[in-house]
Amino acid sequence: MRKSFIISIYLFATATAVSAQDFRLADSLLQTGDYALAAVEYERCHYCAGSRDVSLAALRQKAQCYKHLQRYDLAASTFERCAATYADHIQIALCHYLSGHYSRVVETAQSAGLVFDTASIDMLLLHTLALNEMQCYDSASAVAFRLAGLCDSAAASRIRAVVSALYSRTPRLKSEATARWLSFLPGLGHLYAGYPLEAVTALLLNAAALGFGVWQVLDRCYITAYIGGAGTLSATYPGVMKSASLHVRKTNLRRASSFNSCFRRQLIDNLQPALNRQEP
């Protein structure tokens, strides 16, 4: 609260119209690595801007400060305040990708394509990578082939070949529902997920609880059977199903991450010449 109050005083106290030449203080702070203060100064320049162009330029520089600070959510929201060009939308998509908001990358790419009726290698690359992270490989493949179409003929042929080869071996993802059904026999769900040690543990734990309960019933110790046997089993049995589902997620995440990392490296390596030729 105190910080916001001080910033508000700073903004109102210096509310004189500024031009792009008045970015000197903000630019010097940016160059010296004082990104937080530079962001505040660029906000002041935006607030006091004498024209729309100066206002947008200040916001773009402020967003760059947040990128340097790795505050990608703030960078994205700041770029959204000045989203006047297709390049701004590319920056928004990039910040969403870096912050792990992959669905928002897809939304940004789709909306920018509709609004500006254009596409670029940068945006389609981010769109493809985001869809991969969401494990939507069919959609990602379609976008990747669109991306290849924007390159020159030699590069396009090479990229299509790389994309075809990579998407021919997408990771085989396991089903959480299948893991839960298999877990009706404790341990099978974990075995399906690829965790044999956890499968043995789950089986032994539930077998021990069941065995103890049966033993106590046969020994006519019904209260102990209920508390120690049935009570323990009522906690461990559903827990095994939930655990199996979580282990399937871990397996899928590991497989998808390995594929996505390989895909990202190979695609960017092949796209590098085209990316270097693009306007900054």
Rank of each mutant, 00 (worst) to 15 (best):
A57K: 10
R81H: 09
S99L: 09
A144Q: 01
S164D: 11
A15F: 12
D34T: 05
C45Q: 09
Q91Y: 10
F116Y: 15
N252S: 07
V54K: 08
G50F: 11
A230F: 15
S157M: 08
R249N: 04
Q61K: 15
D34M: 11
A156Q: 14
R160P: 00
I9A: 05
Y222F: 15
G149I: 06
M134I: 15
A76T: 00
C136K: 11
T32H: 08
Q61I: 06
T224N: 12
Q216S: 14
V143T: 03
S183G: 07
A154E: 00
L126F: 15
L74Q: 04
A144H: 05
L185I: 12
A154Y: 00
D117F: 11
L147S: 00
R277E: 04
A202W: 02
R172H: 12
A230S: 13
N260K: 14
A119K: 06
G149D: 07
Q266W: 09
S183N: 04
A58L: 08
T232N: 10
Y167R: 09
R160K: 12
F212Q: 03
G113M: 09
A39G: 01
L191R: 00
T118M: 15
K174N: 02
I121T: 03
Y86W: 04
A161W: 03
R160S: 05
Y42H: 06
R255D: 11
L267R: 03
S153K: 04
A230Q: 13
S19M: 08
Y192E: 05
L166V: 01
A225N: 04
L203N: 01
Q21T: 07
L271Y: 07
L56D: 03
H190G: 01
F263C: 05
A119D: 04
Q110K: 12
K67R: 14
D34I: 10
L69W: 03
V214H: 02
I227P: 02
R104N: 07
H101P: 00
A63R: 03
C82L: 06
Q266G: 01
L29S: 01
Q31H: 09
P238K: 11
S111G: 05
